[in-house]
Design a protein around this nucleic acid. Structure first.
Length: 508
RNA sequence: GGCGGCGUACCCAAGUGGACCAAGGGGACGGAUUGCAAAUCCGUUAUUCGUCGGUUCGAAUCCGACCGCCGCCUCCA
């Protein structure tokens, strides 16, 4: 079984076959940098980062493009409101976005073009469209003529007739209400920095054209996968298709992948929401604030715990629940390190992940039940999950299964008390395998520090004293005093764990 | 009005015709372990998948109707 992808264009799951064998081009619509990015803006990058990691693992050479839209009406308004320049605003918001991407370990982006730096390419596409009669000029504006495109509406499944009369005509220059601006003539009073020269006079590009131009710049007329949020299907992606295919007379994107939107209190998280509660929620859900409050890995884990096409409901309760699940892995890694004296992460660097075999998509559970009942093959299960339209939720479930398997083995073999070199090797291999798989999702890339307290020498030392003191009390069977110490620490959010090899502690 | 999505246990969530008397996580409850806890392990927690019909040897999965929720059609990841 090959990898399958749900294609919005056909509304079916299709076998994945790249245009050029072994190579994959991906374009994801990135942010318009006028306001701080929120959690919703991280969903696409996190998913596609995992997609790229996985496709790379499956042997493809992937090129991933995410654009930055830094020329837009909203930037003009926002910059004016903040009494700053568009360039300064865009640079500031973009830096904030990139910082978040870095923290989230979205590090697979290969090219990040800015609209303002691709003006020549954009104008070139518009010129082609005008020359071909697919676009017309009106008072310095240029509009795409949707009637020139016979299959306009194929992505969103809308016909031009359905739309007629549904949308107010803007500016009165359009021949058809569905026509959209490729180029907007500069208006008096607009800042000079958004007035670009063009064959039609000074102005700036419309919203949709920059994605077509930037995609074409990197990939040429056609690319493999184009992604974005579901809210972009219409009009944005519909218009991208119209422009690109009219300009090139070639199919634009082979597969369209759309991720579900992030919700809060069942409502979509939207920049334009003016409801006071929504505004407050949105402010909290900026990536900047969220990453100050929660670990990037938790955010990533949270996002990938749901299949990408489904909406994600954001809430503190859910995040807290996911954190407990994530902690299971951290504890396992620490446990293995305690037993073996070696880092599980380091073991993962060395571990070999079995190459996916032809039968990788076969179920791993041995129904013959040869002796010991069910046997797990985490790698095959993981691959099967990911091959099925990048089902990260199912893939994560296989990680939990694999982690339980390791813990159960430790219990069964009593390795916590004594483990010889052979046991240690097995343990490191199993755990390393879990980490290797998780890394295909961008998880556990590096040792997560401070999961079990630590980091502060003074705190460590004081804790050592308290733990030694409590051990002393326990030895004398003075459990009242021992429990007092533990209870007081619990009140501070510190948990003690008495294990075979001594007492450990952690925050939370 | 047009287009699209969703409704699976207490919560989150995978599964979209036979491996399902339905993964995985959180929670809860038993047991092992522990001085007691914590952690971990073992087990229990949906004969049922919004409701009602239909197709089929067989449906959570397909079809129809209905109920509820959400998104797009103006800016949005």
């Amino acid at each position: 079984m090959p990898i399958t992808i749900y294609n919005t264009l056909t509304r079916t799951k299709e076998p994945f076959e790249p245009l050029v064998a072994g190579k994959v081009g991906i374009y994801l619509c990135g942010p318009t940098v006028y306001k701080p990015s929120h959690i919703g803006h991280a969903v696409g990058p996190i998913i596609f980062d995992a997609v790229k990691r996985y496709l790379t693992f499956r042997g493809y050479q992937v090129t991933w493009v995410v654009n930055v839209t830094d020329v837009d009406d909203k930037l003009i308004d926002e910059a004016r409101g903040q009494k700053t320049t568009i360039r300064e605003l865009a640079a500031r918001v973009e830096a904030d976005y990139l910082d978040a991407m870095k923290k989230l370990h979205v590090d697979g982006i290969d090219v990040m073009p800015r609209a303002s730096e691709c003006m020549g390419d954009i104008i070139g596409v518009i010129r082609t469209l005008v020359d071909k009669g697919a676009a017309y000029v009106a008072d310095g504006d240029v509009y795409f003529d949707v009637t020139s495109d016979p299959d306009y509406g194929k992505l969103s499944n809308r016909s031009i007739e359905d739309q007629a009369g549904q949308r107010a005509l803007h500016g009165g220059q359009k021949r058809n209400p569905n026509d959209f601006a490729l180029w907007k003539a500069a208006k008096p009073g607009e800042p000079e920095e958004v007035k670009f020269d063009s064959p039609w006079g000074k102005g700036r590009p419309g919203w949709h054209i920059e994605c077509s131009a930037m995609s074409m710049k990197v990939f040429g007329p056609s690319l493999d996968i184009h992604g974005g949020g579901m809210d972009l299907i219409f009009p944005h992606h519909e218009n991208e298709i119209a422009q690109s295919e009219s300009a090139n007379d070639a199919p634009f994107a082979k597969y369209w992948m759309h991720n579900g939107l992030t919700r809060f209190n069942t409502k979509k998280v939207s920049k334009s929401d003016t409801d006071p509660e929504a505004v407050r929620a949105l402010k909290r859900m900026t990536l900047h604030n969220l990453l100050a409050e929660f670990s990037p890995e938790l955010i990533r884990f949270f996002v990938l715990s749901t299949h990408y096409r489904r909406p994600i409901e954001f809430s503190d309760e859910e995040l807290a629940g996911k954190k407990k699940g994530l902690d299971t892995f951290y504890r396992l890694f620490e446990r293995v390190e305690r037993i073996t004296g070696q880092s599980a992460y380091a073991a993962a660097d060395k571990a070999q992940l079995a190459k996916p075999s032809r039968d990788a998509s076969e179920p791993s559970r041995d129904r013959e039940g040869a002796g010991s009942g069910t046997r797990l093959d985490p790698v095959a299960d993981f691959i099967r999950a990911m091959d099925d339209d990048f089902n990260t939720a199912a893939a994560i479930a296989t990680l939990f299964d694999a982690a339980s398997e390791v813990n159960a083995t430790i219990e069964r073999e009593k390795w916590e008390k004594a483990a010889d070199d052979g046991a240690k090797a097995i343990l490191l291999q199993m755990t390393g395998g879990v980490i290797r798989l998780a890394r295909l999702l961008g998880l556990f890339l590096e040792p997560a520090s401070a999961h079990s307290g630590g980091g502060d020498d003074m705190v460590d030392s004081v804790m050592r004293i308290l733990i030694d003191l409590r051990a002393h009390c326990r030895k004398k069977k003075d459990f009242e005093a021992a429990d007092l110490i533990r209870n007081r620490l619990t009140e501070l959010g510190i948990t003690l764990e008495d294990r075979a090899d001594g007492t450990g502690w952690r925050k939370g």
